[in-house]
């Protein structure tokens, strides 16, 4: 057994059935020094306070359940070791910009609903071949990185343009639009560009780069959104 250390943690708690508004609750946890934020939350739940709620599943940074804000940054709890925040106590709160359901669990319905607005599925006019559609490695490369998005919400939640306008599609939904617009197999790019080429679409992105910093998968979101803007302009002339 590795030696354990004491960690001071403050968690923003909220139970809709009891609390008028969220409040900070302090905990002190004894845990191994290489523990992740998720390990700490589990330790609290399992040993100290079973009422704490948060989402988690894969614990390998691929399912997107555990995005939350720690010491001011949106991160995935499962892949972030606590020593990233060396020497400091931990302040853990839910993703900002969304309604809190309970404790660290937020309501992502609006986030997913925006995704649906860009028609996130391949649309085809051409006949379907017997085998696969031919797509070159270069064409695949166009969409490879954007496909890594795990829909955790960290980007959209960090975007000031989203905070100030609820109707704005936000980085994740725009990235999804990009994924299909730039898929060589898809036949509905124009239709999707019409959807994103809107005051609540791509033009609300002011290239603030918060989303890119927040993305746990290091997707160059702002760059892709800029390419979307170019495409939208090309299409309208």
């Amino acid at each position: 057994m590795d030696e354990q250390t004491n960690v001071k943690v403050k968690i923003l708690r909220y139970n809709p059935e009891k609390d008028k508004k969220p409040f900070w609750q302090p905990y002190e946890v004894k845990i191994e020094p290489d523990a992740t934020i998720l390990d700490i939350l589990n330790e609290i739940r399992w040993k100290l306070d079973g009422t704490l709620a948060f989402r988690r599943s894969c614990r390998s940074a691929i399912c997107g359940s555990c995005a939350m804000k720690v010491n001011g940054r949106n991160i995935l709890a499962c892949e972030t070791p606590m020593h990233r925040f060396k020497g400091r106590g931990l302040k853990i709160e839910p993703l900002p910009g969304f309604r809190i359901i309970k404790d660290l669990v937020v309501d992502l319905d609006s986030f997913f609903e925006k995704m649906n607005r860009v028609r996130p599925y391949l649309l085809l006019d051409k006949p379907i071949p017997d085998k696969e559609f031919i797509q070159s490695p270069e064409e695949f490369e166009e969409i490879r990185e954007v496909c890594i998005c795990i829909l955790c919400g960290a980007c959209t939640s960090s975007c000031p343009s989203v905070w100030s306008n609820e109707e704005y599609l936000g980085p994740a939904a725009l990235l999804k639009a990009y994924r299909f617009i730039f898929d060589s197999r898809d036949d509905a790019a124009d239709e999707r560009i019409d959807i994103v080429n809107d005051k609540n679409g791509i033009w609300r992105c002011h290239t603030i780069f918060n989303c890119m910093e927040a993305c746990p998968k290091h997707i160059k979101i702002t760059e892709y959104l800029s390419r979307l803007k170019v495409k939208a302009v090309e299409n309208s002339i």
Partner: peptide, 12 residues
């Protein structure tokens, strides 16, 4: 056909 982005061979 539903759009899964598969890695490709040189000939697509």
């Amino acid at each position: 056909h539903m759009g899964v982005p598969f890695s490709r061979t040189e000939d697509g």
